[in-house]
Amino acid sequence: VALQRLVFQGGALPTKVVCLTQIVGADELKDDEEYEDIMEDMKGEGGKYGTLVNVVIPRPNPNGEPSPGVGKVFLEYADVDGSAKARQGLNGRKFGGNQVEAVFYPEYKFHEGDYDG
């Protein structure tokens, strides 16, 4: 049962994609400059743990439609070694006052552009 829970929770089985949750507010992401800043911070800090392949920060729709994954940040690494170190290192850290939770994210979902997991 414990193992099943782990599987369903996701986040415990290592993948190359680390998802940082509850990290940014939608208002910050609407602002282009803020968005760039956050992107830069993510690349800077995330790059310390391994080779970053891709960084995705979902932004809110300008037309006000709900957009999945807003508030999360996705870091894709070249290998699981990098993503595992990043998850370990970033989990529990603070970003702009928010306590960051870092979990592994399913690679197939990430590549399909499904950020709602």
Partner: peptide
Amino acid sequence: GTRKRKSRWSEEEPKPFQLPDFMKDLTGG
């Protein structure tokens, strides 16, 4: 300018004691 500024990341704090990941998930830390 706005380009060069302090990262929003907090300083990396030394963590007192690390359980293996799977244990942390079970106990909620």
